[in-house]
């Protein structure tokens, strides 16, 4: 996308408006206003993406490497079985935690629209994890879930175990329950916020109508409420999933070690003493972007198709 294309006015629009000199000035003014945001995003974001793709294809003259276009780095990466294990782990953590956070978040949003004592308190409470960094969540996971942690102590208190080693290992395994717990803890509020906002917007009239027509609670949720909150659900889960795929700190600290998730793999390549491995790291980075892109576009396309079937556009 170039900087000039969005500023071209609609011909029909232009015909409606006044003389062409004024029109041209307005168009320039419009471009001037859009220029800073375009500059930042195109240069930084677009530049970074283009550079990453170029490098992963063997373009790194500053290392004395320039074999562009060279698909060998992708070949080497995709040819190794550990890459696919890493990819599987990355997607597994991202999907499971997004799904759990979605269920928790929707349930919480549905409860929050009700009237109950302490509602103000809850409206503060549920946003707390949203306000603090992931690293805090990781610290809490270490404190609660490690073998010497609080849950292990509670289990000992209840007489279930008498040695820390007997506590089931939650952190640093490839099941990733520690990672998932942190993501869920941090993202349930995000999804709740998105869904709650939509619920406030739509009001309760449609649900009341359905109830009067004799629908039960289940039917009301799946046939009336869910289709209406779907835009909030889709946009918030998109963001959470993309974040989880690219997250580094939780898998780095709480993950099971080799094979790591893809962002950690890329980071290790990048910090390797052998700096030519950085190109391998770039191929990993581009792979993360590709996989996330394909999944998210598929998700969005499925959602759009559903919307069309529902008669919305």
């Amino acid at each position: 996308m170039s900087a000039s294309s969005p500023a071209v006015p609609d011909p029909a629009d232009a015909a409606l408006r006044g003389p062409s000199a004024r029109e041209r000035r307005a168009r320039v003014w419009q471009m001037v206003q859009l220029a800073p945001i375009m500059a930042v995003l195109v240069l930084l974001f677009g530049g970074a993406l283009v550079l990453a793709v170029l490098q992963s294809l063997g373009f790194a003259p500053w290392f004395g490497v320039n074999t562009f276009p060279d698909f060998g780095y992708f070949g080497a990466l995709w040819g190794s079985s550990t890459f696919w294990v890493s990819l599987g782990l990355t997607l597994y953590y991202a999907t499971v935690s997004t799904a759990i956070a979605l269920v928790f978040g929707v349930l919480l949003a549905l409860a929050l629209v009700k009237i109950f004592p302490g509602k103000t308190f809850y409206k503060y409470l549920y946003k707390l994890p949203l306000m603090i960094p992931y690293t805090v969540g990781i610290a809490l996971a270490v404190l609660m879930l490690s073998n010497g942690g609080m849950l292990s102590r509670l289990a000992a208190f209840a007489g279930l175990i008498d040695d820390p080693a007997q506590f089931p290992q939650i952190l640093k395994t490839h099941y990733g329950w520690g990672i998932i717990a942190v993501y869920v803890w941090k993202q349930t509020p995000f999804i709740t916020l998105a869904v709650y906002a939509v619920l406030l917007g739509i009001g309760r009239e449609t649900e009341e109508a359905a109830a009067i027509l004799g629908a039960n609670r289940r039917t009301i949720f799946f046939r009336v409420t869910l289709p209406q909150i779907l835009p909030g659900v889709v946009s918030s889960t998109l963001i959470c999933f993309a974040f989880n795929v690219g997250a580094f700190e939780a898998p780095f600290i709480l993950g099971g070690g080799f094979p790591d998730t893809l962002p950690v793999v890329a980071w290790r390549y990048f910090n390797d003493a052998d700096y030519t491995l950085q190109l391998q790291g770039m191929a990993t980075v581009v792979s993360i972007g590709l996989v996330a892109g394909v999944i998210l576009f598929g998700y969005l396309a499925a959602y759009r198709r559903f919307e069309r079937r529902m008669g919305r556009n």
């Binding site: 993406l49 690219g246 962002p263 980071w267 790291g281 770039m282 972007g289």
Partner: peptide, 9 residues
């Protein structure tokens, strides 16, 4: 777009 991809690039 995953943050790790942007960050390393």
């Amino acid at each position: 777009v995953p943050e790790a991809a942007i960050g390393i690039a």
